[in-house]
């Protein structure tokens, strides 16, 4: 009888769902085209297989990168403004203590994380989502600094000049990709979370 009288709880507000999927699409374009741009002058002793990249050649990749740049920046501003003004960040991502993050990460590794209430993030999730936001901010700032090392030279200087800004941009990308891989793996392990990012609702199960 429980199924018939299911209680639905609101998990993700509309703004968060819309910006999440626009962001997922935008980040995919930025990463795949960025890898092609990286290959034109690799910073490290490896290249990204061209099959994983977007654009077909350097100019094509640059076109994608500097088109999707507008998408993720505008989308990011909407998301951050909403998150701060509505109190979404304060409610969902905080409080956050290193001890709790460590404890929940261990639980996640043992497969013991609780997901009864999908509207409440555990500490490992909070840390991961906050880290993604910070990575994205560093990526946008370092990206602007590489694009405009004269007009925006003050930002380039913060990262230690043009060449070190390229390294920062790459490392922030690597960290973001790592977190996204873990994020997608967790969604596959707990598939119930997937439709909630589309419908915004979840059945209360506890």
């Amino acid at each position: 009888m429980e199924a018939a009288q299911a209680q639905w709880v609101k998990v993700h507000p509309l703004v968060v769902r819309v910006t999440h999927w626009i962001n997922a699409f935008g980040i995919l374009i930025m990463v795949a085209s960025g890898w092609r741009i990286y290959n034109a002058s690799p910073l490290f002793a490896f290249r990204i297989p061209n099959e994983l990249t977007l654009g077909g050649w350097l100019a094509g990749a640059l076109q994608w990168h500097f088109a999707a740049m507008w998408l993720i920046v505008i989308n990011g501003i909407v998301y951050l403004t909403y998150g701060i003004v509505s109190g979404h960040f304060r409610r969902k991502l905080f409080p956050l203590t290193p001890g709790a993050v460590f404890r929940d990460m261990l639980r996640a590794l043992r497969g013991q994380l609780a997901h009864e209430d999908l509207s409440v993030y555990n500490a490992a999730q909070r840390a991961a989502y906050l880290a993604i936001i910070l990575c994205a901010i560093v990526l946008v700032l370092s990206g602007l600094a590489i694009w405009k090392p004269v007009q925006l030279q003050e930002i380039t200087a913060i990262f230690g000049g043009y060449e070190s800004t390229r390294v920062v941009h790459f490392l922030a990308m690597a960290l973001l990709v790592l977190i996204v891989v873990v994020h997608v793996a967790m969604v596959i392990l707990v598939p119930r979370t997937f439709p909630t990012m589309i419908t915004g609702r979840a059945r209360r199960t506890s």
Partner: peptide, 12 residues
């Protein structure tokens, strides 16, 4: 964990 919660909601 996943299975248990599934079964709770789909009891019967």
């Amino acid at each position: 964990m996943k299975k248990r919660t599934m079964e709770t909601s789909l009891a019967g």
